[in-house]
Write a protein that binds this DNA or RNA. Structure first.
Length: 423
RNA sequence: GGAGGCGUCGCAUAGUGGUCUAGUGCACCACCUUGGAAAGGUGGCAGGCUCGAAAGGGUCUCGUGAGUUCAAAUCUCACCGCCUCCGCCA
């Protein structure tokens, strides 16, 4: 959500931003509705003012005089009810329109329609040359009996999976590795956050109403979060933060659930696209300055890269084009890791900043050095998501005989250096 | 799942239909006093919307929302949260 004053004063910039993002929103209509809102508000305030004044008089009036004024007040009240009704109607539309106004993309964001137009900005390590035809993680893991997709589907349905034996151990290892890595780095508070979350926080982070269909909903009307970002941002909802604590950094762990409604034909096999996975997410709240946002955005991106480099996986970083940005995002980098079986890079991390788009919706503020209340800035990036990254490691570390080397940094956690057939 | 209680300005509390534009204490800030501090004194101490060049004004918010009333912190209903007891339970 943007500030209505800002929208009114910068309508052209916002329209251009929306056009760049290929998002429909009727700013002119919003401004007309806002005019109406102000007008009715003023008219209602005058009536309320009169009511307050006359109500005080009634107390001291007696008998006939009192009854007379009460009757007058009943008429005034009817008029107020009418104004209130109109205001309520206008506010419904106002709210709806406000939720459709996208944040303005950064100057550095390239134009484009979809992820096909994202631009590579960095490439690390050359893509490994296998002296044999690399297998997919599905083949490898099934052969090693460390994943079971058939039973996954039997039990959990489409996209269901079991990880067993060394795949389970490798997953735990990755979790412990990433946690240790961030604890060592310092500054991040590790958290385990809810996945079962109420609507408010989804609204606040911008997943609802636009992407509602990709969320699972319970019969008690909570939703299952597709990322720990939702609960982590909700954590400080309706709070006034102490600016001395900035930047506030969290490393949030949670199970994640996604319906993948818009991806029916895609990645129908394996661990790349599943309904249920686990993710460590970096979330930052900082002072309301563009420079700070940019600084932490680069930092969050670098943190993820550092981790991938330790795992020695080839990757590249792309800057997302305007058409591939979400409603609230100002700028986004995706980190994509090499997937040997597909011969292409696959997204493993998504790093974005929002300025005060989310914090305005969530009402997360702080007092600046002048004592003025401001909405904080928010950012987030994946730290590590399994099993997608597990699949990538398996494929990159496969050997000709079908065994899997364990990445050096994970050996202490897994307790072995080779994953081979156990049974 | 059952029974009962509670939610007021950062904290603690007062307030059961109209002088509540919510009182008091603590904390906090400024000033006075002091060599400096404490104590004491004086003043300040919410946010949203809105009118205004400003000074200042109007309005809304006592968990949230709806309702009753000329008038609601106070009465009614729903929801959210917390507490106590019983039952169940990893």
């Amino acid at each position: 959500m943007l500030d209505i004053h800002f929208i009114r004063e910068n309508a052209d910039i916002i329209k251009a931003g929306a056009a760049k993002k290929h998002i429909d929103c009727d700013i002119d209509r919003l401004i007309r509705v806002d005019d109406e809102r102000k007008l009715i508000r003023q008219e209602l305030d005058i009536k309320r003012s009169e009511q307050n004044r006359r109500s005080n008089e009634i107390q001291v009036l007696k008998d006939k005089e009192r009854e007379k004024v009460i009757v007058q007040m009943q008429h005034l009240k009817a008029g107020m009810a009418e104004s209130e009704e109109r205001l309520k109607k206008v506010m419904v539309e106002w709210q709806q329109l406000m939720l459709t106004v996208p944040n303005i993309p950064d100057m550095s964001v390239p134009d484009g329609d979809s992820d096909a137009d994202n631009m590579e900005v960095k490439k690390w390590d050359t893509v490994p040359e296998f002296s044999f035809v690399p297998k997919s993680h599905v083949e490898l893991m099934t052969a090693l009996d460390i994943a079971d997709f058939e039973r996954g589907a039997k039990v959990a349905g489409f996209r269901g999976y079991f990880l067993k034996g060394d795949a389970a151990l490798l997953s735990y290892a990755l979790w412990q590795f990433i946690s240790d890595h961030f604890v060592k780095k310092g500054g991040f508070t590790p958290m385990i956050v809810p996945s079962l979350v109420r609507r408010e926080s989804f609204m606040g982070t911008g997943y609802v109403p636009q992407s509602e269909e990709d969320l699972y909903k319970t019969q008690d009307s909570e939703y299952l979060a597709g990322t720990g970002e939702v609960a982590t941002m909700g954590y400080h909802m309706n709070e006034i933060l102490d600016a001395k604590q900035f930047p506030i950094k969290y490393l949030s762990f949670s199970p994640c659930f996604r319906r993948e409604i818009g991806a029916h034909g895609k990645d129908t096999k394996g661990l790349v696209r599943v309904h249920e996975f686990y993710k460590f997410e970096q979330v930052v709240l900082c002072e309301a300055s563009h420079e700070a946002s940019v600084k932490y955005h680069e930092e969050l991106t670098a943190n993820a890269e550092e981790m991938i480099q330790l795992l020695k996986i080839p990757y590249h970083v792309v800057i997302n084009c305007s058409g591939d940005l979400g409603l609230g995002q100002v700028k986004k980098y995706d980190i994509e890791c090499w997937m040997p079986s597909e011969g292409k890079y696959r997204e493993t991390h998504s790093s974005s900043y929002f300025h005060d788009f989310q914090t305005r919706r969530l009402n997360i503020r702080y007092r600046d050095e002048n004592g003025e209340l401001k909405f904080a800035h928010s950012l987030n990036n994946t730290a590590l998501a399994t099993p997608r990254l597990l699949a990538i490691i398996i494929e990159n570390y496969q050997q000709q005989d079908g065994t899997i080397k364990v990445p050096d940094v994970l050996v202490p956690y897994v307790g072995k250096s080779i994953i081979s057939f156990a049974g």
